[in-house]
Nucleic acid binder design. Structure first.
Lengths: 122, 122
DNA sequence: GATAGCACTATCCTAAAGGATAGTATCAAT
DNA sequence: ATTGATACTATCCTTTAGGATAGTGCTATC
């Protein structure tokens, strides 16, 4: 009986865990890759134009930047605004939803630092 | 003066943010991929053998499972123990460090669920 | 004697991420 | 007339993640 109950409980916990998988994947898709965080940092403090981000995020190519910005816009992390002018002005800024990423990036950073200490050395 | 101070403050914050990048990448490397969470869930509740994990984690191939387990062992998320017997018994269990992942997976899941609501539908 | 289970490894293949390089339309400034 | 700036797009290539399939050495079981 005790055993059965334990198994039931464990089974329940496990089910809860499995339900984590989909939303966790969703979150990782948004966070992942080499460029998302640097781009987010660049935009977080003030609205920036494409070329400004391109200059500030070291090593990124225009092609990749363009793709990342599109993806972040679809994910409602940033907004894109076009102003009619020549040369064209396209501005990117962070959304409220994008701001909520700060907390989890901070937590990832904390965990990562602890991990690094454990793995690489004291 | 006010402006200068603001810029200095912002500059400082930005430097702090940039220092996040390395540990965040470390963390994401550990969390990432399709199989890490399912494997972690399988092992979390009790020590398991290779074949048990293989059966429990649906769709994974032996080759990929073997690679993931090695990586997780190197990251000190799990331990591998061999017991001399035939057929061979190799047991995998979660470490204290591995248990610390639960919290951040939970937070990723929470964020991911909110994100999903925002993007896919109300 | 054949079969099945264990814990892998080896080989081959596909798809996706991301890098390198070059090009586009438009207009203002020199 | 040429140059430069802007915000991209197009083409090509390399690297990486991960899937499919098969095989290994050993033993207990049928």
């Amino acid at each position: 009986m005790n055993t059965t109950e334990e198994q039931t409980t464990k089974g329940h916990q496990k089910e809860q865990c499995k339900e984590l998988q989909l939303p966790v994947q969703d979150a990782l898709d948004v966070l992942n890759g080499r460029w998302k965080l640097p781009i987010l940092i660049a935009i977080s403090f003030q609205t920036k134009r494409f070329s400004e981000i391109s200059r500030e995020v070291n090593g990124i190519t225009d092609r990749v930047l363009s793709k990342e910005l599109k993806e972040m816009e679809q994910n409602k992390i940033i907004t894109r605004t076009v102003r009619d002018a020549f040369p064209p002005i396209v501005e990117y800024s962070i959304t409220p939803h994008g701001l909520t990423l700060h907390k989890i990036y901070a937590e990832l950073g904390e965990w990562g630092a602890a991990h690094r200490k454990l793995i690489i050395g004291k």
